[in-house]
Design a binder for these strands. Sequence first.
RNA 1: GGGCCCGUAGCAUAGCCCGGUGGUGCGCCCGGCUGAUAACCGGGAGGUCAUGUGUUCGAAUCACAUCGGGCCCA
Length: 1069
Amino acid sequence: MKEVNANFNAQSIEREVQEYWRIHDTYKTVKKYRSAGKPFFFVDGPPYTTGNIHLGTAWNKILKDSILRYHRMCGLNVIDRAGYDMHGLPIEVKVEQELGFKSKKDIEKFGIRSFIEKCREFAIGNKFLMDDQFASLGVWLDFPNAYQTVQPEYIEAAWWTLARAEEKGMLERGHRVVNWCPRCETAIADAEVEYWDEKDPSIFVKFPLTGKQDEYLVIWTTTPWTLPANVAVAVSEEIEYAKVRATKDERGEYFWIAEPLVRSVLKKGRYQDFTILEKKKGSELRDWKYDSPLQEHVPLQRDIDHKVVTADFVTLENTGIVHIAPGHGWDDYMLGIKEGLCVVCPVDGAGRFKEEAGAFAGQYVKDSNENVLIALGDHLLAKETVIHRYGHCWRCKTPIIFRATSQWFLKASEMRDLMLSEVAKVTWYPEWAGSARFYDWIKEARDWCISRQRYWGIPIPVWVCLKCNKYRVIGTLKELKEAGGKPLKDPHRPFVDEVTIPCNCGGTMKRVEDIFDVWFDSAVASWATLGFPGKTEEFNILWPADFITEGQDQTRGWFYSQLGASIIAFGRAPYRSVCMHGFALDAEGKKMSKSLGNVVTPEEVIAKVGVDVLRLYVLSSSAPWDDLKFNWEGVGTTNRAVNILWNVYRFPLPYMILDTFEPSNRDGVWDGAYIRAHLSHMPDEDRFIISRINTVAATVDTALKECQLHRATRELVNFILEDLSRWYVQLVRPRMWSEGESVDKRHAYETIYYIMRRLISLLAPFCPHLTEEIYQNLRCGNDPASIHLLDWDAGDPVLIDGSLEHAVDIVRSFDDACANARQAGKRKLRWPVSEVVVVTNSAPVKDAIERLNAVCRDRANARKVSVVAGRWERIGWQAEPVMKVLGKGFGKNSFKVRGLIEAADGNHLKVEIESGRTVKLGAGVDVFEIGAEHVTFSEKLPADIYSATMPDATVYVDVRLDEDLEKEGYEREVIRRIQEMRKQLDLVVSEFISVEVLINDLRIYNLLKNDSNHTIAGEVLAVVPDKGILFSFLKPGDKLRTHDSIKDWEIEGATETVSMTIGISRAGD
RNA sequence: GGGCCCGUAGCAUAGCCCGGUGGUGCGCCCGGCUGAUAACCGGGAGGUCAUGUGUUCGAAUCACAUCGGGCCCA
């Protein structure tokens, strides 16, 4: 053990500890030590390699690390391979920006090979950056061996999974409507669409009914550009539609509109008047024919047989008639299939109209809105603008469009039931994350479009024959080598595109150009990380994962994608338990974003308070599944608690070292056996704190099993502050100061050593650096080389004494009450009091005060602490007049009576009245008879008795001074000043001094002069071996010698302020 | 528009499942302590428990609605 003088400096401690881990390869040692344990298969949700981590990412990894450290200490062999998600559009977009590219044509010109090399560099560069950032958080995952989605064996896992999908008939090549980014020119997944408000036209359009004069169906849309692709309108079977004759400027027209909406629609069209002519149910409108209002401008529209269909998604909004373009809408498309409508999509991948769109050819769809309105001419009934939520590409922020294209799908909708039943088998933290949130999401599961028309991703391993159009799914690199005839080093584009496979028909198969949706990459992580399918040994033992934890956004993301892929591959959920955590928000509960300028980075926090404080803060400030409102004040509070832990740790060290204390051990290994062996002989405060740490251990363990990291950490912080710092350390201090050998001191040392060892090992999963630092200083010679090699201790029930813990609680209340009463009596704690009386009828209070009487006397600084049941005889009663009653009975004499009552002997009055008698007060003619109705009684404390209440009891403090008490009070005052001066002189605790105290008050001088110098000298080390007492009092008028330090003091005594001059000098020479 | 979660003093939170006097920490004010001391302790002030309605003898807690925040979806 070495002494610790320095104040707590998180940064330097953490730096040193990390260096220690690096030199000793502690992480590997721990892993090896636990390698024979029961496996605990954890899968790291791979962060995307975009560069800097933010607070949310840090929180995520801190949660993981803390939980895994706990499991390791519990003896489990934790599989903790880290992972990185390194493909996909976000990286492509970044690289495109770097290279100044605007479209896919630029990439093709640049060369796919060069382009993906840039992407690879970008991803790998960021991976290394992030490795360092995670390591700086003290996160122990296997980073050097992290799984990376760009590695060939990882890609193989994805291929293998797709082959299983094909085998089970879950893969489909389909013409479908998908979310499409016109800038990236690719399909994007539902998960990749971001929504925010956008201003769009809101138009009402007249569709002329075939063969009728001036008779129209009225539809509404916010996307005029989809009108060239209109093939039908939908009505609701249930809604009633009205035919109205509407007039505007003398001209009459006939409209069909949902009856309840007629008025509002016509008002928008500025029609002055209308008459309802007839009403029909939607079902009666079925199969009516109409013509496109754009047929003059869009040639393809002339060949379409437009008709009215019914659909259940039509509601009573706008006009109650919905424009249907199966080429540009999901619902539209599904309806089109059901109704046999043709699918028209006159828009290309870049979002421009094709030739068949006639007048609009070449125009970008969003830009064409205005032209469509012009082309509609008189068919435009009304035009407004609307602000509504619209989808955007998550990377480039371009508004998406819906396009019918040929894509590859996994039939997720067919797996819905199996997914739901599998999810029910998973343990969720919190429970509702699975039973409510995830369940609801899966219920809505749609087929998953896994193809993207891009470059940097896992190529879809499907080869299609150019001749017979048959396709084949390749599941492994080996299979490809056999089929294609040559090995493939890098399975990325464009290399994989060069491989052709001969088809049975004699033709040649070429790979489809698509790559996988990047969500499919991470979906296979739980087996890819085990090297499956290339290696199967670990997979067979470990899979599925025991535990994963990610943010709530991963409900639709990784929780879902993994489940889908796993159902396809293995027919079951890939994880046994899932902890869903919240988001890191700013102090106002708003999302952190660059534009709001409210971003707090992990680095900032670390620079201020260090990693362990950051860790403890994020873990304790909210439940994992609640959002974390980041608050600097909270960080400061946590920092303070850690600082107190540090002070508690370093406080006993100088004494232990002075006494060359060595904790009892067996062959250099500490085992805590001393405590068990000596517990029954130890003082109550020791037994209390020993009991507490074991209770806390049990609580922490229970909380951790339920993923309640906030409860675990709060319990520990609370223990440090309340039980250890504010209670135990206060009580144990005098035993540390005592000189020479004593059993008492030995017990104190063993106890505090035991507490520190137990405490830091409970805290180790959350604050791995600080606890390691303390451990290294405390550990015995043959103890494990790192705290992280210790076994978890969930509390020893034998050492727990619940009734003692409860008794201490009561004594703490007593302590508070004493301080309160003293404050009322203006008697400083430094000044002793003769007696404190606790009046109570509560047996537990009585027992506690009596059992812990020595502690009570010490805390109260009282000569005597006693318990009285019922009443304390020194408490008297004060009679108080009830003026309302007095007024009625005594009229103008009331004032006189009041005075008499107040002056009366309350005790006597109360006895009489309570025994049913009346009392006559006053003299001569002014005698009044007082009854029960005239008075109430309140406690009357004798002078110098002050009281305060505590639960189930009242505490009375007698602050009267006698000569002895006053003398001790002044002694304490003098001692306190001398200690202060020692401190200012920077004296070592054990350094001797000589002292002169000049007291400018003869009475006080006389009070102290006789023997107080002995008492004080002993406390301030002014008794020097061989030289005797070097302490003297001087009376008023005397002069001090020269001293190292001389100071004047004003001391507030019991009745007067006394000025003193104190001089102290080193006694050494 | 829908699903899930959250809303408690200036700030952060416990309590809510299972109804019965709203606790705690920070900050603030007053006082104390002093061989952990750029620490520590006590006391005090401070609350429409987001709002409204309902159920109930009784609601922070249960139900419904509204408002605000977060995540996800349409």
